[in-house]
């Protein structure tokens, strides 16, 4: 734990605050995950952790290593860019999969499939469920 003693006060306090902010956001997102009632409500909860939560942890990490190594530590940007690109994709895929499954079971809670033959421009073979 000696390296943390080298961190000056003006850097240590933002690092601590950012870490706590990120961890709290991730925790609140996961609490929402337990508390919210339906799948379509729960799908909103992880976005707290994947946007600002991981963003503040990455900022804390960048600040800490930039000060400790006295040169810019930028490779945390990679994880940030990666998260920005991938999170919408996974959540959208999951929401569409859930919608597809609910529709094919004839659930009343979801809007019915559009009458036209396409559900998505990228997948012309995606016939709406009967």
């Amino acid at each position: 734990m000696t390296h943390l003693a080298d961190l000056p006060v003006w850097a240590a306090i933002p690092v601590a605050l950012l870490l706590l902010l990120g961890a709290s956001l991730a925790l609140i997102g996961s609490i929402g995950f337990v508390r919210l009632r339906s799948f379509y409500e729960r799908v909103h909860a992880p976005t707290l952790g994947t946007t600002m939560g991981i963003g503040s942890v990455l900022l804390a990490s960048m600040l800490c290593f930039t000060v400790l190594q006295s040169r810019p530590a930028l490779h945390e940007i990679l994880i940030a860019v990666f998260m920005i690109v991938t999170t919408p994709i996974t959540l959208m895929l999951l929401a569409r999969a859930a919608l597809y499954r609910d529709r094919s079971e004839g659930s009343d809670d979801v809007p019915s499939a559009p009458p036209a033959q396409t559900t998505a421009p990228s997948a012309p073979d995606a016939a709406p469920p009967v």
Binding site: A5, L7, A12, L20
Partner: peptide
């Protein structure tokens, strides 16, 4: 400040484990 930082890291880890 180092002690404060260490405790903050520890607390953040606990929060993440609960999450």
């Amino acid at each position: 400040t180092t002690t404060l930082l260490l405790w903050s890291i520890f607390l953040a880890q606990i929060l993440l484990v609960v999450a």
